[in-house]
Design a protein around this nucleic acid. Structure first.
Ligand SMILES: [Zn+2]
Ligand SMILES: [Zn+2]
Ligand SMILES: [Zn+2]
Ligand SMILES: [Zn+2]
Lengths: 145, 145
DNA sequence: TAGCTGTTGAAAACAATTCTCATTCTGATT
DNA sequence: AATCAGAATGAGAATTGTTTTCAACAGCTA
């Protein structure tokens, strides 16, 4: 997605929540976009220059509520953040239980479709309204092996 | 699984880590077993009488390291714990983003097998050593709807 | 420009979890 | 059974990722 289109959509999502698309929020989005993988807040503070920690925490909450950003919580100390799937693509995560690193992966369409169908049945039977499904592989990454 | 057999296996797992299967740890296991669903530490403290908070936190770490107990972390404030799958059965979770409740569910064998195969391929290609896969449905439970 | 409202940054507050340490328990050995 | 060394416990303090506070600031509208 082109930067301008992405910014327009984000602007719209934020406006829907009566929130502005400020400089700090733009910087956050730019950082997440540049990284392309889930990042922790310390990583964001290192990578982007001059952002205040409190604003980063606060703005990630705002962006998450607006549907711009997704929070990934693992057993690691820090939460991780990435652009929401609507700005990237549906995917899942490899979570290294040794170094804590989180990396995206995708399932092939057929497997994803099969999974979706099975989950749909489960949710229906449980009277559960599905917002999203989350699939992670937990183990050891190539670097840590 | 009979209580005695379960206790024997847990005893063995703990011994492997040079840990004892003490009264407090037995009480924890009994509580998790009685609940049958993932529980938070406040819930454990309420349900079981006389356990010290610090010991519960500490013993859940020990039991988790020994492979007796699984920690479930969500966006909720509290981590949740349940008996490890080897003492129950492989399953997944419905996570209510409204009340935070976590409930078990299972996929039918065919869907689970298909998923496993797809994940195996992914892991192999990424050089990732899989310990477990984790599949959650995030949404709203029947009570909160 | 003036005024209104949302945002920022620094620091304080918060809360789940972990750590400390003096005491108590365990269990192996005599 | 008695002993003793090491492990576990409980109460509270400390830690730490995150949230909140609040005074100063920036963006929008008239
Ligand atoms: Zn790793
Ligand atoms: Zn991702
Ligand atoms: Zn609910
Ligand atoms: Zn479960």
């Amino acid at each position: 997605m082109a930067t301008d289109d992405l910014d327009d959509e984000i602007h719209a999502l934020l406006r829907r929540e009566d929130q502005r698309y400020t400089k700090g929020r733009r910087a956050l989005v730019a950082t997440l976009r540049a990284e392309g993988q889930p990042v922790t807040i310390p990583q964001i503070l290192d990578a982007s220059d001059g952002l205040a920690q409190s604003s980063v925490y606060r703005n990630l909450v705002v962006l998450e509520e607006a549907g711009v950003v997704t929070r990934i919580v693992t057993n690691d100390d820090f939460a991780r953040f990435e652009l929401a799937e609507q700005f990237t693509h549906h995917h899942h995560h490899l979570i290294c239980s040794s170094c804590g690193d989180v990396v995206d992966f995708s399932l092939d369409d057929q497997a994803e479709a099969g999974l979706d169908e099975a989950l749909h049945d489960v949710a229906e039977q449980a009277g559960f309204t599905v917002e999203a499904h989350r699939l992670d592989l937990v183990g050891t990454c190539a670097d840590c092996d």
